[in-house]
């Protein structure tokens, strides 16, 4: 007979490691000093494309819009053969069915935001139903948001339990936990939230909803990658990382790859463990890839705006 939830002793998350702001920002800027050229650039760009979660999360989303996005996911730029697809398409729960059907057989995952995305201000049973609905409709991945209000109020066990329950509701689907770092305020809290999420069973930790500024930054991502590394060393369990929002240029995306390579190494350099939550990034990557192939930059009009 397992203990009732309120009896389980959880780690004291207020003891999560502290982060020095100056130090982490200095370290993050070092990754931008690597010189990425020639085949390193080409391979890096392909890897980036393959790590993208193409996303549409708007009130005005329709079946038609989602279908178009799914086509783009499978055929990023047919003028250039041999390109990888993106990793996943990320939509609201009501659009999961449409996306699932449109992506059938492509191997591209369907991710759904749940738990009253983006604010997360809803009762827990609503969040659980939201999640179950998405999974029942075929979502392979669930992107949940944490309760930032409770987190700021110091109710870490509440946040922890909620993540654990959503994880349970996910079943086979992989759970990405959005910390919404732009609302957390300090690197210390980013680290603490990362630790809570991983301890509670997150498969991925993710920076942002994309609805709040600032979204993903390199120092925030570095803090989370280091949390992932420490958790891996402690438990042997790998956790994925997804910076989302604010990464729209290839050069910046390559800096993120450098960071993953130098903090977590080889095992995380695939879309199973690292994702970019970005939509406008895809076209910039394609533009760079075409430039690498042909030596010429093409105008934005040559790349589909889905």
């Amino acid at each position: 007979m397992p203990l009732p939830r309120e009896k389980i002793i959880r780690p004291d998350f207020s003891l999560s490691p502290r982060i020095d702001q100056v130090g982490v920002e200095e370290r993050a800027s070092r990754f931008t000093k690597r010189s990425i050229k020639k085949e390193t650039k080409l391979n890096g760009l392909k890897l980036v494309l393959n790590m993208i979660d193409l996303t549409t999360l708007e009130g005005k989303d329709t079946d038609g819009k989602v279908k178009q996005l799914c086509y783009k996911a499978m055929h990023p730029h047919d003028a250039l053969p041999g390109l990888p697809t993106v990793a996943a398409v990320c939509v609201y729960p009501t659009m999961v069915k449409v996306a699932k059907k449109a992506l059938e057989g492509s191997g591209i995952k369907v991710a759904s935001v749940t738990t009253a995305f983006p604010s997360g201000q809803a009762p827990r049973d609503v969040k659980i139903r939201d999640t179950k609905y998405a999974v029942a409709n075929g979502a392979d991945e669930v992107d949940m948001v944490i309760s930032r209000g409770k987190f700021h109020a110091g109710e870490y066990n509440f946040v922890y339990d909620e993540i654990a329950m959503i994880k349970e509701a996910c079943g086979e689907a992989r759970l990405k936990v959005i910390l919404e770092t732009g609302e957390l305020g300090t690197y210390d809290k980013v680290r603490r939230a990362s630790d809570i999420a991983m301890q509670a069973g997150a498969d991925f930790i993710k920076t942002s909803t994309g609805k709040i500024q600032p979204a993903a930054t390199m120092p925030v991502t570095l803090v989370m990658l280091e949390a992932i590394r420490d958790f891996y060393y402690r438990t042997g369990k790998m956790t994925g990382m997804k910076p989302a929002g604010g990464i729209s240029k290839s050069k910046l995306a390559l800096h993120y790859l450098v960071m993953v390579k130098e903090v977590l190494g080889e095992d995380w350099l695939s879309n199973e463990w690292f994702r970019f939550g970005a939509s406008s990034l895809a076209n910039d990557v394609l533009m760079q890839l075409v430039k690498e192939e042909t030596g010429l930059y093409q105008a934005g009009n040559y790349f589909s705006a889905d």
Binding site: I36, T40, N43, G44, L47, K261, G265, L269
Partner: peptide, 8 residues
Amino acid sequence: FDTSWSYA
């Protein structure tokens, strides 16, 4: 850290 994606 010896990754398949290395710097040129």
